[in-house]
Amino acid sequence: MTPRDTSAPPVELAAARETAALPALAVRHLTVAYHESPVLWDVSWTTPAAGLIAIVGPNGAGKSTLIRASLGLVPKVSGQALFFGQPLSAVRARVGYLPQRSSVDWDFPASALDVVCMGRYRLHGWIGPLGRRHREAARAALAEVGMADYADRQIGQLSGGQQQRVFLARALAQDADLYLMDEPFAGVDAATERTIIEVLRILARAGKAVVAVHHDLATAPDYFDHVLILNGRLVGAGPMDSVFTPENLQRAYGGRLALLDQAIEAAARAAAGRRDAQA
């Protein structure tokens, strides 16, 4: 680690804490390898304290790995991840997580409400039955994603989009300040996608940070304010307008995709829209 990357002098740090919020997630020199082939190579990245942040990149670029390694779910070869300036163990209650749907056993005997209740464990404590307050909070989270009517359904009996909403509700129930979401829009229909993005926008307006792995380049500029472009290494990171550029996308995707043109168009449109809004 070079001196430049380590934390600023203490005085400055304290000042920073007072004036501006700390970055929700700061990744330093993260390197991750599966079976000796590196997936992520020396990625350093700092998110803003709030807002909607997309992680984009081609398949195998290490998008999910970045999230999972930050959360300590896959071993890092080197590097560290700080949440609100601290290691995860100190601020777990402030971090919510939405895993990829494929990692779940859908045959598990749990209702939608049960799943959402899992989001409250941290706040409730591990032992003993869950109190009424937490149940209510879980129900509220379900209602927020429009799933209140399905509270008692077994999760396997829900459609893909509904399942995703339940897991989003679980993340919401955590009442966190930072949400890490692994492909929240994968395999959901248009209506669910809209519901989800609305919920995410509400979170962002409430001053929370949402980091989501996102696949659809065409919608990315529309949905998110910030972006991290990955291709094993860091290609670019920062505000959508300045980073989501043809050059960066070309570098990440190698210019292979016809989709790129669409994405670039969309970016231009979104940028124009944002300018109008500001005007």
């Binding site: 959360l71 300590g72 779910l73 971090v95 899992m118 989001g119 464990y121 591990w126 679980r170």
Partner: peptide, 15 residues
């Protein structure tokens, strides 16, 4: 239950 259902999530929330 959490460990049986989704150990990764449990790990994230500090179980």
């Amino acid at each position: 239950r959490l460990v049986c259902f989704d150990a990764d999530y449990g790990r994230v929330v500090g179980l």
